[in-house]
Write a protein that binds this DNA or RNA. Structure first.
Length: 583
RNA sequence: CGGGGCGUAGCGCAGCCUGGUAGCGCGCACGGUUCGGGACCGUGAAGCCGGAGGUUCAAAUCCUCUCGCCCCGACCA
């Protein structure tokens, strides 16, 4: 902080050693900028958002843009320190890349075109197209293309902790989804598939250690590689109601996947020996309406949904109790949109609500589960449904998994019941393969003198999301309860009465002593009433509080209180250091 | 981008329907009394009522446009 101290010099010479700057600087509450709020700002909804605002960790500048105040920044630096340690442990080398990128590099991989409004674009003074980096595959690969020449140069793992910019369609939930955010992104460069597999594995293991050390409850799940390209990818998910994703989990066999691609089978229907017959169903259009009318569970119905793809109309069929999964369908028929009511009438000759799969000339894609037993579906004429429809006899289709996995479905691996949980995505790992290296000509010569594209992986972690997830998973009605590893301070000292000379004397003494032990101590030396100090301490959430009260001090005692359990033990003043060390 | 909601003092809100001197709680400043779970009394500072235009003798209030923020959805490399 003060440039003249040796700590300051260390910081400027070696920015990665954040530890030194963290342990220096101000630790007195009266001097620190910790603007706590008694009431939550009205536009905060997520628990982590409310608490981080109230406890003085962050402030919002504009939609999706946040300022990290001293406490918030300390937390991020704690998280970053863990990230760096674990990345270095697997051979990652930290570098720093520009946020401002020339368009050409992105044009070469096709993403300049492929990515839409989510990329911030601008021109420099000479009219050259530029963009703000939303990720760094292109630039990392560009670097590799110029510098890597031989298999002897591989493998490499390069990483950075850098600002990313994305013009999000909808920033939300405080620091969970922002337009500018810090990201640890690493990239592996290998000469063989086996080597990539190893890079991928050590990243997965490092990620487990990172999230574990940060005190999170989390899981690794299969994910959809999406437009990153490549075949394999996993996401690291922290369960929380504030999350935006859902994962399907099988507790029996361990299967877990984002619902975007999770496979599941519905609970089987009972067999009925229905004869095929038309049933009058006046004004009953939706599955729910017909189900109520016929007193038959929705799972015995076929839901027919007409969509318009680039190659014409497609009829998608799912079971009545299922939801069509747009992404799964997209993989089969490409981009598509729902048909309008008039289109349904034109193409199928019947109004929506009474559609059945029989007798149409258009492409039909059906969920696999519809192959069993008999079903009820629309009769292709107004106000009638048909009972006793059988797949392949009465209609044919392309069979695929196109439904959304839901809680209660059957695990296709082990037949147990699946659960679905809401989660925050805190990290992801992708096997990119050669998509970027081919596009940017990042080639190397192998042992045989053959020119080959470098095989890549990319791996991301959002430090702010770790912080938010930690708050979501660790709080109570009074405030945050930080995991020790990422708390802005190790201990908070609470000298309750700053007008009592004994209290101040002991507090100053303990403050020096604990700091001397290498602990980061926040001392609430404000001339505030005890109640205010207690409330703020609980809000801010430092895991250990040391309470110095006048009465206890007369007997030579102070209290050491656990923020999580609220349990306090009285300890002799001279035993405090020992006791705190053992926590 | 579609749907919904909200912009009034630093924060939380009332006032708007039915136009007529801008209010309450907390916070903040000063003085006093208090002092182990967000104290009490007194005094005080603080507002382009998001912005622009219009209607009117008169607009926080009515009308039009616009900007911003939040929530749901779509999107999410």
């Amino acid at each position: 902080m003060t440039g003249k101290s040796s700590i300051g010099h260390q910081y400027y010479r070696n920015p990665t050693k954040t530890y030194f700057i963290l342990s220096g600087g101000l630790m007195r509450f009266s001097k620190m900028f910790i603007p706590t709020l008694r009431e939550a700002p009205a536009d905060a909804e997520a628990v982590s958002h409310i608490l981080m605002l109230r406890a003085g960790y962050v402030r919002q500048l504009a939609s999706g843009l946040y300022i990290f105040l001293p406490l918030g920044w300390r937390v991020l630096n704690k998280i970053n320190a863990v990230l760096k340690e674990e990345m270095e442990a697997i051979g990652g080398q930290e570098i720093s890349m520009p946020v401002l990128h020339p368009a050409e590099v992105w044009e070469q991989t096709g993403r300049w075109e492929a990515i839409g409004e989510e990329m911030f674009r601008l021109k420099d003074r000479s009219g050259r197209d530029m963009c703000l980096g939303m990720t760094h595959e292109e630039i990392m690969t560009w670097l590799a293309s110029r510098e890597i020449r031989s298999y002897r140069d591989l493998p490499q793992i390069w990483y950075q902790i850098q600002t990313k910019l994305r013009d999000e369609a909808r920033p939300k939930s405080g620091i969970l989804r922002t337009r500018e955010f810090l990201m640890k992104d690493s990239y592996s460069f290998d000469s063989t598939e086996e080597a990539l597999e190893k890079s991928y594995q050590i990243h997965a293991e490092a990620y487990h250690r990172i999230f574990g050390r940060c005190g999170l409850s989390f899981m690794m799940v299969e994910s959809d590689p999406g437009m990153m390209g490549g075949a394999t990818s996993h996401e690291f998910m922290a369960p929380s109601p504030a999350g935006e994703d859902e994962v399907a989990i099988c507790k029996a066999c361990g299967y877990s996947a984002n619902v975007e691609l999770a496979a599941s089978a519905p609970v089987k229907n009972q067999t009925h020996d229905w004869a095929k017959e038309e049933i009058h169903t006046p004004e009953k259009r939706t599955v729910q309406e017909v189900s109520n009318f016929l007193k038959l569970a929705p799972s015995y119905f076929i839901k027919s949904i007409l969509v318009i793809s680039e190659k014409g109309p497609v009829l998608a069929l799912v079971r009545g109790d299922q939801e069509l999964h747009e992404k799964k369908l997209s993989k089969i028929i490409g981009p598509h949109r729902p048909a309008q009511k008039t289109e349904v009438k034109e193409i199928l000759g019947v109004e929506a609500g009474f559609i059945g799969p029989m007798g149409h000339k258009i492409r039909i894609v059906a969920d696999e589960c519809l192959r069993d037993v008999l079903y009820v579906c629309g009769a292709n004429k107004p106000h009638y449904h048909i009972r006793g429809i059988m797949a392949e006899r009465d209609f044919s289709a392309e069979w695929h998994d196109i439904h959304t996995a839901k809680a209660g479905d059957i695990c296709i691996g082990c037949s147990s019941t699946l659960e679905v949980a809401r989660v925050i995505e805190i990290g992801n790992i992708f096997k990119l393969g050669t998509k970027y290296s081919e596009a940017l000509k990042a080639l190397f010569l192998d042992e045989n003198g053959q020119e080959k594209p470098i095989i890549m992986g990319s791996y991301g972690i959002g430090p702010a999301r770790i912080a938010a997830a930690a708050v979501e998973q660790n709080h109570d009605k009074d405030g945050i309860i930080w995991p020790k590893s990422i708390s802005p301070f190790d201990v908070e000292l609470l000298p309750l009465n700053m007008n009592d000379s004994k209290t101040v004397e002991v507090a100053e003494d303990l403050y020096k002593k604990l700091r001397g032990m290498g602990l980061e101590v926040l001392m609430d030396d404000r001339e505030e009433r005890a109640g205010v100090k207690f409330k703020d301490a609980d809000l801010i959430g430092i895991p250990t509080q040391i309470i110095l009260g006048e009465k206890n001090l007369k007997e030579g005692l102070v209290e050491i209180k656990d923020r999580r359990t609220k349990e306090a033990v009285k300890v002799k003043v001279h035993e405090v250091a020992e006791k705190v060390k053992s926590l």
